[in-house]
Amino acid sequence: MNDEVIITIEGLKKHFPVGSGRFTALNGIDLSFGKGEFAGLIGPSGSGKTTLLNIMGTLDSPSEGMAIILGESVGNLSARASALLRKSQLGFIFQSYNLFQVYTVFENVEFPLLLQGIEASKRKKMVLDALEWVGLTDKIKSKPAQLSGGESQRVAIARAMVKKPAIVLADEPTANLDAANSHNILQTMEKLNRELKTTFIFATHDEKVIGYVRRKIFLFDGKVAKDEKIEKN
C-alpha cells in the first residue's frame, strides 16, 4: 500500500428525513484511505455502509462534517464537478450488476469511455484489455440476459475498471453470487488491485469478501466500531 491518502472523512454525519423526524445513518465517521487499499466496510443492514459508500462516490452529500475525495470536498462539489469526478476517477460495482440490458458486453464496458470522449480505436483496445482482465473476451457480443451471475459481475468489474479509476466502490458485489463465483470475482478484483494499484472499497457483510480484504472497518449504528488492518502476503 502507498501512503498517499486519497480519501479523508472527518466528523461525517448523514441524516435522512423520516416522517416529521430524521434518521441518522452516519453519526460522526472519521476515516482515511490510502492509494491501493483493499478495504471492506463491514456491518449489518442499516449500519450505514451503503450511505458511506454513496458519499465517497459523490452520489450523495454529507449532512455534517466533510468527505474529501481525491482532493475534492464532496459537500462543495457542483453536480457537474461531481459527475466529472465520477466519470474520470471513480468506478462502481453494484450488487445487482446494473448492466445495461439492451447493450452487448462490449457496449457496456465501452460506456464509461464513450462518456470520456475517447476515440474509437483506443476505446476498442481499452475495452478488450478490460475484458481480458476479467476473462470475458469470448462474450463481447453477448447481451447481459445471456450471461450467468458471475459473468455479469465480471462485466460490471470490467466496466468499472476500463477507465483505470483511482477508486472502485463495490456495494455487496458478491451478494447475488454462489461461493465459486464469489471467489472468482474477488480474486479478479484482488489481482487488479495489485496490478493497477486501484483502491477498492467494499460495502459488505459477506464472510467471503471479509476474507479477502486487507482492512476491515466495522460499522455499527452509523459509527466506526472497529478499524483493523491485516497484513497479507
Partner: peptide
C-alpha cells in the same frame, strides 16, 4: 447507473 458512471 448513468449518473454513477459520470453523467449529469
Amino acid at each position: 447507473t448513468y449518473v454513477a458512471l459520470g453523467m449529469t
